[in-house]
Design a protein around this nucleic acid. Structure first.
Lengths: 211, 211
DNA sequence: CGTTAATTTGACCAAATGGTCAGGATTTTA
DNA sequence: TAAAATCCTGACCATTTGGTCAAATTAACG
């Protein structure tokens, strides 16, 4: 009996170990080369197993890809769920922005994986975007809208504000190569993301117009 | 004699027409599927010619890709060159941001093409990033730095400010599918980008902290 | 220990794809 | 208009790659 998708038997030790190994390897490869740019052989090699053996755990390339995406999605959305309607707006948005930036620093592959998927038309996760993602964003946009209404924030469109936060923070994962080309090794220094965070919060909170 | 790269003979009418047709088709396909995700057949079909005929004009897939990239790069960098050191800082940065956003609206393929290339490690244009792009950015960062020094702008890091502008504006091209999943057809309405522009300039200029 | 189930592998297949080539069709030019 | 150059095509090839399979190996368990 093989352990492939859809079956309910209990998972073996070996199964758990190898599936984890595969998914870890696959995340890295998919994030760098995209779905079509990735070969099963590449993943197999990185996971230190033969291609047929890898295919014993995941019947098709697409299955690996979907698993990796799903696995990463939750983690990716968590910070937004923590935006607290009862907290101080500036503090909450600051926390959220900072958390997202940290994720770009610590786990850029996740960001790149989604960037790839979305750039290519989100063929695999469109339903998630239209489903749980939309729901979550709608909910949090309402929170921000409420903050604006009560005068605790400048009058801005909540959705576009969220998009701006995503854009700026994820840019530090997705476009790091461009940044490195311009700034050199500085981008790999520990204080680089600190400087980025300072600039982002300065601009987001106070704007570039001097008072 | 074939018209392939490296030769200096004058270009035929047919040559000019077909090369243009190929590059136009290729931009679209490459922007959507990336380099490896694109097949020569796809481009040939979109350009309404047979694969061998396409390969008569461009010997290799890579040649088409590089041509498309180079062709788009100049256009892509133009707005930044127009940042005027003698202009009013707020007005200049506003103009630049607005211009970039407009480009995301009118020619999202260009943005997606670069996003893809950079996500995949910029194998073809790393030298451009480290060359003319870096030079241009260094120059304009100095201009912004000067503005900050003279108190015409809030104290921000010029490079990170530029990155923020790129990130926010290009996001509207690269992640439009995600936006559409969340906001629906609204993103295709003519006033959508206007709203985006308003939010961006409000945040960039004045920040979200109410005064 | 021996039987059964799970795991691994080498060999293999079919489809997709980048690219070639000989020759025919068409356009240019002398 | 006829030779020369350019343009175009069908047929073809080699490689890559996703995926299969029968059989061998290893682990689990009564």
């Amino acid at each position: 009996m093989n352990p492939r998708a859809g079956q309910t038997k209990k998972r073996t030790r070996i199964q758990a170990k190898n599936e984890a190994k595969i998914l870890e390897a696959a995340l890295d490869i998919f994030a760098t080369f995209g779905f079509r740019g990735t070969t099963i052989d590449q993943i197999a090699q990185k996971a230190e197993m033969s291609k047929p053996n890898l295919l014993y755990y995941f019947r098709r390339k697409e299955d690996i890809y979907i698993s990796v995406l799903e696995r990463t999605l939750d983690e990716w959305l968590t910070p937004l769920t923590e935006l607290d309607p009862d907290g101080d707006p500036i503090r909450e948005i600051g926390k959220y922005t900072s958390l997202k930036l940290q994720m770009s620093q610590n786990d850029p592959t996740a960001s790149r994986l989604f960037a790839n998927e979305i750039l290519h038309g989100a063929p695999m996760i469109e339903h998630v975007l239209k489903g749980s993602l939309k729901d979550l964003v709608d909910e949090k946009a309402a929170v921000i809208h409420h903050w604006v209404k009560s005068g605790k924030l400048t009058k801005v469109d909540p959705y576009h504000l969220i998009f701006m936060i995503w854009a700026t923070t994820q840019h530090y994962a997705d476009f790091k190569i461009q940044m490195r080309a311009i700034l050199g090794d500085e981008v790999d220094q520990p204080d680089y993301f600190e400087k980025a965070g300072n600039t982002i919060s300065t601009v987001f909170f106070d704007g570039i117009k001097p008072r």
